[in-house]
Design a protein around this nucleic acid. Structure first.
Lengths: 229, 229
DNA sequence: ACCTGAACACCGTTCAAGT
DNA sequence: ACCTGAACACCGTTCAAGT
């Protein structure tokens, strides 16, 4: 929009992989994935659609590039100062929070972040290292470190998705669910009905920290530590 | 393909919501979401693309219908026989396994199942009831039942996704990850390197049950039960 | 009531051409 | 080397028409 371009001035490129991906991320963050088309992207950059193909081989490459770009933002607090000595549950928590924050920063893109993460593998390595290191400190053997790391990552992925999409229809508009429940035959889901009836608005909010605590408590039963925190 | 149609024989409809959704699910299961277009779907049914719009208002409705259809397949083993008296962790496990199996039955569709679950809300109710009932039996107060249920669902969603997409680049082709790791500067991710180096192919496999066990152990620290089975 | 067909406003991408 | 423009094979959907 607006930006006019002349012909390429000598020596200065007016289109780069970076500038394209930057525009793409802006487009996605502001208008959602549906708005990301090669043609709209080109229009945004004031350029012919085909010009993009000189810098990125196709739309798939644009999306892969975005995964990279976003993962590069992931910064697990490096345990600054005495951080290396923090108890392992705190370090796992730091990883989980950082990853979740990343997802929340780009709600329209979470889905791709979560399902095409291989593209961001290189960028995700440092982050994974933080998680693996924390679990190693916990005293788990390699085999269990891998399993525990998967558990944490799977949970955080699930939460990230839930926050943009409320899976299994169980949260967010739980009030709607209750309404739907009442239209149902008679006492079709008694526990569900009873449980949801009793709760305040606040009780129905997502509670990432509860899940994290519980998960860490579970891991603690394996490492032999007492309940963390 | 192949199927020829005459003009609508008197009284018998040659297209119904059900037949359309059935064909759509077949298409998705066999060829993936990319193959699901209104035009291909119509071709599959031997019909003009526009004919579909008389039974479903658009593509979004087709996908919502598929979510419903798939969720309707979800059957948590109804704790047959003495089942109602099974210990709560086993009942939670039964729910988790049923939901995960459902996801595995339609790998190309997991993503939509997980992110557009509201559409299947009605169908998912019965399943949720099983989970909520199990957690109520565990003696949790309503507030915590909701949180525990979210934890289980989020984890299973994360796993389901992982199985089709290996998020955070941490599994599946962990061998590739190791290779990528070695191209990295020097000792850039020491723990990751050490941990992955030691493991057998089998150690690297996904382990849904480990996650489930750990999660249940975590919940048990809240209910005051000993470690479950 | 149900299906058709042409048309509109989009897509991603290939290929030949311009500078 | 980098950008353009026309073209191809697709999309979802609207609208007017057929039976």
């Amino acid at each position: 929009m607006g930006r006019r371009l002349g012909r390429p001035k000598a020596g200065q490129e007016l289109l780069t992989r970076e500038s394209i991906l930057g525009a793409a991320l802006r487009l996605v963050d502001e208008q959602g994935m549906a708005a990301l088309s090669m043609r709209r992207l080109a229009a945004e950059l004031g350029v012919d659609p085909m010009a993009l193909y000189h810098h990125l081989p196709g739309k798939a490459a644009v999306i892969a590039g975005l995964v990279e770009l976003v993962f590069a933002e992931l910064r697990v607090p490096p345990a600054g100062g005495a951080g290396e000595d923090r108890p392992w549950p705190e370090r796992v928590r730091a990883f989980a929070r950082a990853y979740r924050d990343l997802a929340r920063a780009h709600p329209h893109f979470v889905l791709h972040l979560v399902t095409h993460a291989e593209a961001g593998a290189a960028a995700a390595l440092e982050a994974s290292e933080a998680l693996y290191a924390a679990l190693a400190v916990a005293g788990l053997p390699p085999r269990l470190i891998v399993r525990a790391a998967d558990l944490v990552v799977d949970y955080v992925n699930g939460v990230a998705l839930a926050e943009v999409a409320r899976p299994l229809g169980e949260r967010g508009d739980r009030r709607e669910l209750l309404a739907l429940l009442r239209e149902q035959p008679d006492a079709h889901a008694p526990t569900l009905r009873r449980v949801l009836d009793d709760l305040t608005e606040d009780d129905l909010r997502l509670d990432f920290e509860f899940g994290l605590d519980t998960l860490l408590a579970g891991l603690a039963t394996i490492t032999g530590d007492g309940a963390p925190a």
